[in-house]
Measured scan of single mutants.
Amino acid sequence: QSFTCPYCGKMGYTETSLQEHVTSEHAETSTEVICPICAALPGGDPNHVTDDFAAHLTLEHR
């Protein structure tokens, strides 16, 4: 399964590499985005909106 960065649209990330990408490239970004990992999880929330995606990844998807 691969994920797309909700900020810049780059594709092909794993859960881990998406977290690394967001932390390095978009750490200061506070735009509201939908978490693509939550959306892909069975029973996950397809509409989970977060305005601190880097922190959300760290808390929810480590």
Score class of each variant (00 low, 15 high):
L18H: 07
M11E: 11
V22S: 09
V22I: 05
P46C: 07
H56E: 02
E20V: 08
I34E: 08
E32Y: 03
A55W: 03
E25Q: 07
T16R: 14
S17T: 15
A54G: 04
H61P: 02
F3N: 02
E15A: 07
T50H: 06
T23I: 12
T16A: 15
H21I: 02
S24C: 13
P46K: 15
E60I: 08
Y7L: 13
T16S: 12
G44N: 13
C38N: 09
V33C: 01
F3R: 01
H21W: 01
T31V: 14
A39E: 12
D52Y: 02
H48M: 13
H48R: 15
C38R: 05
D51E: 10
Y13H: 09
H26N: 06
L41H: 14
H61G: 02
A27V: 08
H48Q: 14
V49N: 11
T4A: 08
C5F: 00
T14I: 08
E32K: 15
E20Q: 12
C38T: 03
E20L: 07
K10S: 11
P46Q: 01
V33L: 04
K10G: 12
E25H: 09
T4N: 12
F3Q: 01
H56F: 00
A39G: 05
E25R: 09
D51K: 15
T23E: 12
D45W: 06
T50K: 08
H48V: 15
K10E: 11
C5K: 00
Y7C: 12
V22N: 07
T4I: 07
H56R: 01
H48P: 13
Q19A: 15
I34S: 08
L59S: 13
T16P: 15
L59G: 10
K10R: 09
G9F: 13
S30R: 15
A39N: 10
I37H: 02
C5W: 00
E20G: 13
L57V: 08
S24N: 13
G12H: 01
S17Y: 09
C35W: 02
C8Y: 00
S2T: 02
I37A: 02
L57T: 03
G43W: 09
H56P: 01
C38A: 03
C35E: 03
Y7A: 13
S24T: 12
L18P: 04
K10Q: 07
P42N: 12
G44E: 13
H48I: 15
T58G: 07
P6Y: 02
E60V: 13
E60Q: 13
D45P: 14
M11V: 12
E15T: 10
H26T: 11
T50D: 02
T58S: 14
H48Y: 14
C5Q: 00
T14H: 11
T31A: 05
L41V: 14
H21G: 12
T23G: 09
P42Q: 07
H21A: 04
P46E: 07
H48E: 14
G9E: 13
F3D: 03
N47G: 14
R62F: 05
C5L: 00
P42S: 08
T14V: 12
D51C: 08
D51M: 14
T50G: 05
C35M: 02
S17C: 00
Y7T: 10
T58E: 08
D51S: 15
T4G: 04
C5D: 00
L59N: 14
H21K: 04
Y13D: 03
T23H: 12
H48S: 11
L59C: 07
K10I: 04
H26D: 06
L57P: 02
T50N: 04
H61D: 01
F53H: 08
D45K: 14
V33K: 05
T58M: 09
A55P: 03
R62Y: 09
V22H: 02
C5H: 03
F3S: 00
C38K: 10
S30L: 07
L18D: 08
T58H: 09
L18Q: 06
P6D: 02
E25Y: 02
C5G: 00
H61F: 00
S24A: 12
E25F: 06
F3Y: 07
L41I: 14
C38S: 05
I37P: 14
C35Y: 01
M11L: 08
H26A: 03
Y13A: 06
S30I: 07
N47P: 15
H48G: 11
T16N: 10
S24Y: 07
A54R: 04
V22T: 04
P42K: 14
A55M: 10
Y13I: 09
L57M: 07
P36K: 03
L18Y: 15
R62M: 15
C38W: 02
H56Y: 01
L57Q: 02
E60A: 11
S30C: 12
F3M: 02
Y7S: 05
G12C: 02
C8I: 00
T58P: 03
A55Q: 09
T23Q: 08
C5E: 00
A27E: 11
T58C: 13
H61A: 02
I34T: 12
H56W: 00
D51Q: 15
N47D: 12
I37E: 02
Y13V: 06
M11D: 00
S17L: 13
I37F: 01
A54W: 02
L59Q: 15
I34A: 11
C38I: 01
T50C: 07
I34P: 13
I34W: 01
P46V: 05
L59V: 10
G43D: 11
E60D: 13
M11F: 11
K10D: 15
G43M: 06
C35V: 01
A54I: 10
E15D: 13
A27S: 09
M11S: 13
V22M: 03
C35P: 01
G12F: 02
H61Q: 02
P46L: 07
E15P: 11
A54T: 12
Y13Q: 10
A39F: 03
T14Q: 13
T23F: 11
C38V: 04
G9K: 13
T58K: 11
L41D: 15
M11T: 14
A55N: 15
C35G: 04
C8S: 00
L41A: 13
V49C: 09
H61C: 01
G12I: 05
A55D: 06
F53P: 04
E32G: 11
T23Y: 12
V49Y: 12
P6E: 02
A54Q: 09
G44D: 09
G12A: 03
T4H: 04
V49R: 11
C35T: 06
E20T: 06
H56L: 00
T16L: 11
N47F: 13
V33S: 03
H26L: 05
L59D: 13
A54H: 07
Y13F: 08
T4D: 09
I37C: 02
T23K: 12
A40C: 07
P6I: 01
H48N: 15
D51I: 10
P46T: 11
R62I: 14
V49F: 15
S17M: 08
L18N: 11
T31G: 10
A54V: 07
I37Y: 01
T58W: 07
G44I: 14
H61L: 00
H21N: 08
S2C: 02
V22G: 07
H48T: 15
A40T: 08
D45M: 06
T50W: 11
Y7D: 11
A39R: 13
E32H: 02
T14S: 10
R62V: 11
N47Y: 06
T31N: 15
T58A: 15
L41F: 07
I34D: 02
C38Y: 03
A40W: 03
G9C: 05
E15G: 06
T50I: 12
T14P: 08
L59H: 06
G43Q: 11
F53K: 05
T4Q: 11
I34Q: 08
E25W: 06
N47I: 10
H21L: 02
F3V: 05
S17K: 14
T31C: 03
H21M: 02
V22Y: 05
T4P: 06
F3P: 01
E60F: 13
L18G: 03
G9Q: 09
V49S: 11
V49K: 15
T4V: 08
V33M: 03
C35R: 02
C5N: 00
P46N: 14
A54P: 09
A40E: 09
A39D: 10
Y7M: 09
A27D: 10
A27K: 14
E25V: 12
H56S: 01
G12W: 02
A27M: 03
A55C: 10
S2A: 13
C38Q: 07
Y7W: 03
